[in-house]
Design a protein around this nucleic acid. Structure first.
Lengths: 163, 163
DNA sequence: TTGCACACACGATTCTCGTCGTCTAGGCTC
DNA sequence: GAGCCTAGACGACGAGAATCGTGTGTGCAA
């Protein structure tokens, strides 16, 4: 087990990488006060454990999918998990959340046109077993998409044993 | 302007990077059929133009924010843009969308505890000017979070002039 | 022709990556 | 408690690879 305070080093590595994902291990090592090799091993471990991951994010409009839609779905009792599986398997879907509230599932997808979205909604989604009710919400503008949200966060010292 | 078909090279670079964000320019160049230098410059340009960006994504629980909440907000007429600005400026917020439907804004945030979320909701969010009604939706499980969604998408040839 | 936008070529510098020796913490036996 | 052993993490280091800046060529349009 990390001998306490080690997790803070991990977090500072993560914060630093969130701030600049493409910096070299050498630069990162200098900032967090470790050697290049140690930083490299820690990053590998953090990625393997799922605490950190790297992504290249494409602009959906640039890739030919300008229509950004959110679906709120109420599922039949007991059907939620199945439904989530099926939604997650659809390539149009980027995010699928199991949530509380009036609806059980929120899913976000990208489409080439409103018409294609409509086809998807009325055809593929509407025909799925277990869909009681669904609503679409069109995303007009993304005001903030901060995969970098962790950057400014001050970490409480007493929160060290989280998964 | 790119002489047509150049945008397809850009897209194949993007797709390839989405598939593996940390591959070297040399490897990428071999796959898309360009030299290392050309790929490097194209990637720089794509990032500068906002069509592509690199991110290191931290696990929110690991960073001490296990509570994942979505807020649906109905704003007073004319107040939406202001409200969006204010929400986007809050460090707890990771995503802020301007949307259609019953609500005008959907915002997603991460909190250290449900209590902190409640404090935020009743205190900071509830006191903002222009908030007519707001609901919280707790995210129980993230079934899919595919920043890599663009990977499998076939691009229509007639969709070349999008921003 | 001139200008411009790309692409390629090619060193110099920097980084990555595997390996090795060291140090420390913890557990075990005596 | 002393001595010993093991596991994990760290730093050091060198070979190989990647990056990065610059210079040159080529196609196209004004």
């Amino acid at each position: 087990m990390p001998p306490k305070g080690s997790i803070e080093k991990d977090r500072s590595i993560v914060r630093e990488l969130v701030r600049d994902p493409r910096q070299s291990n050498v630069a990162l090592a200098a900032k967090v006060g470790l050697s290049e090799g140690s930083v490299r091993r820690r990053v590998e471990r953090l990625v393997a454990e799922g605490h950190l991951h790297f992504a290249a994010i494409a602009s959906a409009p640039f890739m030919g999918r300008p229509v950004h839609t959110l679906f709120e779905i109420q599922s039949a009792p007991g059907a939620t998990d199945d439904l989530i599986e099926k939604l997650a398997a659809m390539p149009e879907m980027a995010y699928v959340y199991h949530v509380t509230g009036q609806f059980d599932i929120i899913a976000v997808g990208y489409f080439a046109s409103s018409n294609e979205m409509r086809t998807f909604w009325t055809g593929r989604l509407g025909n799925l077993d277990g869909v009681m009710e669904s609503r679409t919400v069109m995303v007009l503008r993304v005001a903030k998409r901060l995969h970098e949200w962790a950057r400014d966060i001050a970490i409480d010292d007493n929160v060290t044993d989280l998964d």
